[in-house]
Design a protein around this nucleic acid. Sequence first.
DNA 1: CTCCGGTTTGACGCGGCGTCAAAGTCAAGC
DNA 2: GCTTGACTTTGACGCCGCGTCAAACCGGAG
Lengths: 278, 278
Amino acid sequence: MFRIGEFSRIARVSGRLLRYYDSIGLLSPQRVDPATGYRYYTADQLGRLNRVLALKELGLTLDQVARLLEETISVEEIRGMLTLRKAELERSLGEQAARLRHVESRLQQIDEQGRLADYDVVLKPVAAQSFLALRRTFAGMDEAVATLRELARETARQVPIDARGALVVVAHSDFEDEQLDLEIGFVLARSINRRIATTDGRALAIGELPAVDRMATLVRRGPDYQSHLAFGALGLWMDANDYAIAGPGREVFLELPFQRPDQHDTVMEIQFPVARAA
Amino acid sequence: MFRIGEFSRIARVSGRLLRYYDSIGLLSPQRVDPATGYRYYTADQLGRLNRVLALKELGLTLDQVARLLEETISVEEIRGMLTLRKAELERSLGEQAARLRHVESRLQQIDEQGRLADYDVVLKPVAAQSFLALRRTFAGMDEAVATLRELARETARQVPIDARGALVVVAHSDFEDEQLDLEIGFVLARSINRRIATTDGRALAIGELPAVDRMATLVRRGPDYQSHLAFGALGLWMDANDYAIAGPGREVFLELPFQRPDQHDTVMEIQFPVARAA
DNA sequence: CTCCGGTTTGACGCGGCGTCAAAGTCAAGC
DNA sequence: GCTTGACTTTGACGCCGCGTCAAACCGGAG
């Protein structure tokens, strides 16, 4: 019989750990002196302790270790738990590797630019949203901006404020195209009955912005003519982290533009659905 | 200006997180109404929040993120922190991969044996210890066991109990050799002056059991003739986890054998210094 | 009997929030 | 104006696996 100190030296663990394992019923001493509360361990129990430590080393929680050590558990259940753990480890290995790539790409950006990158790309899931919008092709940016401006004005006038969500532009065409296939509208917070139309008679149609579980997002502030910088940053990020565009991008206006005449800066969130590159 | 709920929806984070970041000074709202305590955020702050989230994604602690966002920090310091983080990630990646191999080997053992493996190998660092022992070659196991038995008896008689550590056998030869080159003795808890000798006149010499930072250990209970099972388990473990023997193995007796005539079982810890296989 | 070094229980701390709970605020509808 | 119901505030506890005190008690040697 060893007292806790000697046993902890033999096992090379702390006494605190032994007391903790006792308190959660994972490894109780063979005998506890009822008068003094002293814990007495036997050499045998080192085997059990080692089993606990070995299973813990696999990354299992102490709860899981306890279940694995119950005598009523079947081999299949043990296999199941370990298989589960294996899958989890594989997933987290992938995540760790991705993190490492992220760090490396930030370091590379610092070396190239002499400072921390200007834009930060964040990956988030986005839920589906009801979307009231107008889809058409535009001959150029100027035309698109004019329509955007008009729509911002009209919705502000015609749509109740509590139904009005953010103004969003969805780009269905690549940026290299001559013709811009855009969908311009705003998110509906609740359904409305009113018909909204532009001055040239086109009516906005209700559709849905589909949910995207891996949306690369980036916040940009500044005048329009600098927007290529933000897109460049997004491209770099996807390159460095092995992502590819997986759907039409969106521009979400957080501060409505054109609200005051002196307001040149707009704040928008640029969003792109992405997927792991092959 | 957005209130916390709207801002949290835009940023797709919880309100609790925003309040927490405010409380630790990581991201405070632009304005706080002094009368009501309501927090008001601007679109601009989404940029800062995204920077925080992006850096957190790299696995940095919020403390480190806060330091990275201080304006007084230099590019070199940022580079240093990220480089450090990179090294840490590489280390932990290796650990994760090792864990995965461990899980896979346990699964394989289950498939082969139909149950959880009998022995659990645990890796621990072992400190240097003062060692009073006799080293010689033995013609066979019987001779070695006889000496071990005699030494156990003699030390029990001649050495004060508070100086007596565990009985240890160090194997300097491989198990395949005809001649066994063994060192048999016990750990000294404190220095002693007494001379200890065996009946054939050989004196025990004081030496040192060197420290080993990666010792594979395993607890075995049972009669001597089954010890090959434990060694087999150790071999399997090293095989599966890419370790190789890196020094003489030890057998540490936790329950002194031969103490009572009816005692057949001994409990010992088998130890092997290991290193990553090439 | 006195030491000194064990040992006991108990509490707090860590990191990064999630999850209530109780109390106060806002805007819309009447 | 008053009532709702949705929102917001602060505060507290919980998680996981112990490390790290602190105060009180115990064991064996001299």
